[in-house]
Design a protein around this nucleic acid. Structure first.
Lengths: 104, 104
DNA sequence: ATGTTATTCACCCATAGGGGTGAATAATGC
DNA sequence: GCATTATTCACCCCTATGGGTGAATAACAT
């Protein structure tokens, strides 16, 4: 599922940092790994999870893999979250209306 | 961390369903468990994680625990996601501007 | 007092996944 | 061809966590 993969991908601090870094532009796996003191391998796995969510796209240039950030799946995530919030807002409005009805 | 707890809480389908259900109003643990064929205990644990993220509030009425949905932490999550998307938009705008500069 | 209902606590089990290392693959530079 | 560089593949380890069961706690109902 698209939404699930997206939220799962966002639920890890390393992956969030990677996305933030990619917000500044394309980067190689090695570049992405630099700020963290975890192995290249580990970063590579995080990238795979980000790719599964289609949040990251890969472009090979020779032996380098250039990663870029695709924000599109964020729309679905935002929509879901916004939807939940809307439910709550409606509920609160109904409550408020009921109170106004009962008070006077 | 607030953001982390929130995103972690949202990264599970059962918890998302629980939130969606709570969007319709307060419910007991038993009510929340009904749609799933998992044990009450399991649901109880999910609720604990939702409470950790402050997405769910608990109100005891006698022996019943009434759970309600607190959408406030969603704001921080939305803000973070929106921020990432904004980074990307700025990057794309810069690229576009550079192209326009180079073309003619 | 006793039984029933609602929930959690204290465990156990299995899997996912975040971390590591070392070998394999592939492209560059010489 | 050979060494170097960039990345992945194939493993292993360990913790978090989603799931379960059975006992404990707490509040009704009788």
């Amino acid at each position: 599922m698209q939404l699930h993969d997206t939220l799962t991908a966002l639920a890890d601090p390393t992956r969030r940092a990677i996305l933030a870094r990619l917000g500044a532009g394309e980067a190689r796996v090695t570049d992405l790994a630099a700020p963290f003191d975890i192995s290249l391998n580990s970063v590579s796995k995080h990238i795979r999870i980000l790719e599964r969510a289609d949040l990251v796209r890969r472009r090979r240039a020779g032996r380098e893999h250039l990663l870029s950030f695709n924000p599109q799946p964020l729309d679905a995530a935002m929509a879901w979250i916004e939807g939940q919030r809307a439910l709550m807002t409606r509920q609160l409005n109904a409550l408020e209306a009921a109170l106004k009805e009962a008070k006077p």
